[in-house]
Amino acid sequence: MPDTKNRRLPRPFWWGAIAFGLVNIPVKLYVANRARDLALRLVSEAGTPLQRRYFCSAEDKPIADDDIIRGFPLEDGTHVTLTEDELAAVAPEKSREIDLKSFVPTEQIAPIYFDKEYLLLPDKGSLKAYRLLARALHAQGRSGIATFVLRDKERLVAISAHKGLLRAETLRFHDELRTPQEIGLPAPASPDAGLEKSLRTAIDRLSEQEPQKKTLKNPYRLRLLQLVEKKLKAGEDVYTAPASVDSENAEADVIDLMQVLKNRLGEKTQRRASSENDGDSGDGALDSRSKAALYRLAQDMEIEGRSRMSKRQLIEAIDRHR
């Protein structure tokens, strides 16, 4: 196990409340899987790290994230721009609420509908209601279905319980799936009996109960690690990383969801867990926090204009936002 000391805990991808009838359960939503890409770094000839930055195409200068707005392109080359607040007005009732309207047998959801997996963790004293919903869902093998707005897009979501945790899986809308007829696939035809028999024999021969673990590993990653190992042994092209190298995405310290889970779910440790690096909006006094911690909190809450705010203004904005 890599050492856990220097890890940054993952940020919630969304926060809001689940509506279970009239019961509101404040939650935070986290991405459940690790990034797909291997941690290959882009570096300069001299081995200094390169960072992806946004540049203004007119001024040819790097710009801060806060100075970026979204524009919808029009035919004449101009854009209709939209701010966060304007976008939030599109479907305000769905921006911060997952209203569970119906509960369906989980096994009825065909795999083709499942898109991404997230974990929901209880927020601000909602642990009891959270556990209650998880128990009720688990007991009946059902998933709660809702639509809500996640990052400028309405998502269909199925919420189910697993090991006492609430799992949120986004589903593809029905019209986001093409039908075999649209694609032009042929209508079912009765198969040639001989061909079917030989295929079934081939399938039977390859039948097993469990997938082989090694099949599920990324072969490219293995080849890459072998190459790295070889070069390390030979001491070829190996440099000590400069202090400026950002280790946040290194494979050595991949997002430690388990740590967040432990922090947020143990009742005893919950208070301690609302520490600064958790980005938690917990119940701690905002005044006692550093400006950097307040800024991170403001980032999580997507408070606009945060980069220009003083500490006092940040505290006020966060308070208003809660």
């Binding site: 882009l42 300069s44 200094t48 790290p49 390169l50 960072q51 992806r52 930055r53 946004y54 540049f55 203004c56 195409s57 007119a58 001024e59 790097p62 710009i63 100075d67 970026i68 707005i69 979204r70 524009g71 919808f72 392109p73 101009t78 854009h79 721009t81 939209l82 083709i112 400028d152 897009k153 593809r172 809308f173 019209d175 986001e176 799936l177 093409r178 400069p242 400026s244």
Partner: peptide
Amino acid sequence: AAVDRSIHFRLLHEKDRAPVRQALVDVD
């Protein structure tokens, strides 16, 4: 089998409404 029907925005520089592009910057 899956199609993307979401509306995509362009990222613009707020000040001059010019589209942004990504570039790599040597941190040092």
